[in-house]
Simulated scan of single mutants.
Amino acid sequence: MVKLGESTVCPVSRSLDIVGDRWTMLCLRELFMGATRFEEIQIQTEATPQMLTSRLKALEANGMVARHLYSEKPRRYEYRLTEKGREVYPVVQALRAWGETWCKAPDEGVAVLYSHQECGHDVGLDNVCTHCGVRVERKDLDARLSDKFAKERAQRHAVFKGKTGPV
């Protein structure tokens, strides 16, 4: 029996077996934005509970996230990126940069502005601080949502709360 991704030595194919669908990438986006709880991730990805459960289980099985119990009754877990999961940030960042450049109208503006914590300057769409030339990782950055993106996220939250009641 061939294990997932082992039918080829191609690293692109093997990587896509783990992170190559929309829902997985949106889960990773939310984890990088600081969401740790199922409901938070579900609200912003708009995934069904079944879809989100399957993606989080797959990320856990592949060592990308680890579950941590935060409530005994009822049993509830939060999801945290592992080192392996944090290492995929350049891929998420590259998709963000490409999407900002090629998938939006110029007048829409950048959805998330990142500044380098060390110097406070904007890093733009790159992974190198334009001010000090330092290569940055997600942990080195402060994020600020554009007004439009913040409203979009707040609206998703309000719709979710209206449908389900208290979370």
Rank of each mutant, 00 (worst) to 15 (best):
Y70R: 06
H157W: 13
E72I: 06
L81I: 00
L113S: 04
R75K: 15
R153F: 08
Q155D: 12
E39Q: 05
V167C: 01
F160W: 14
G20Q: 02
K73G: 10
A47M: 11
A58F: 00
V136C: 09
M64A: 08
V167M: 02
E72Q: 11
T53A: 11
V167H: 08
K148E: 14
D21K: 03
T48D: 04
R96H: 11
G133F: 06
K139H: 11
F149I: 03
R135I: 11
G133D: 09
R14H: 08
A58P: 03
G133Y: 06
V110L: 09
T48M: 00
V65L: 02
L125K: 04
Q117I: 15
V88S: 10
E118W: 06
H157Q: 14
V136A: 00
E39T: 13
V12L: 14
S115K: 13
M64W: 00
R138S: 07
Y77E: 10
Q42N: 06
Q93Y: 02
R80P: 04
K73N: 14
W102I: 00
L81E: 05
R29K: 15
L4C: 01
R55F: 00
A97R: 01
P11N: 09
E39D: 11
L4W: 04
K84G: 00
L145I: 07
Y114H: 13
R14K: 15
G162L: 08
V123F: 05
A143T: 03
A94C: 01
G165E: 08
V159N: 10
S71D: 12
E30W: 06
P166H: 07
P74T: 03
E87D: 12
H68G: 09
G165C: 05
G124Y: 05
S7E: 13
E78F: 01
D17R: 12
W23R: 11
L95P: 06
K84P: 02
G99E: 13
Q155E: 15
P90D: 03
A58I: 07
V136H: 03
V159R: 15
A35E: 11
V9Q: 13
Y114G: 03
D126N: 03
K148R: 15
S115V: 15
R76C: 04
K57D: 14
L52R: 08
R29N: 15
R76A: 09
K104D: 06
D21I: 04
P11S: 12
E30M: 12
G5Q: 10
M51A: 14
M1K: 00
L141D: 01
Q117S: 12
V12N: 08
E78I: 02
A111T: 06
H68V: 11
L56R: 07
T82N: 07
L81D: 07
V2D: 07
T36P: 05
R55V: 03
V128Q: 07
E108D: 01
S13W: 08
Q42I: 00
V65F: 01
D21V: 02
G165W: 08
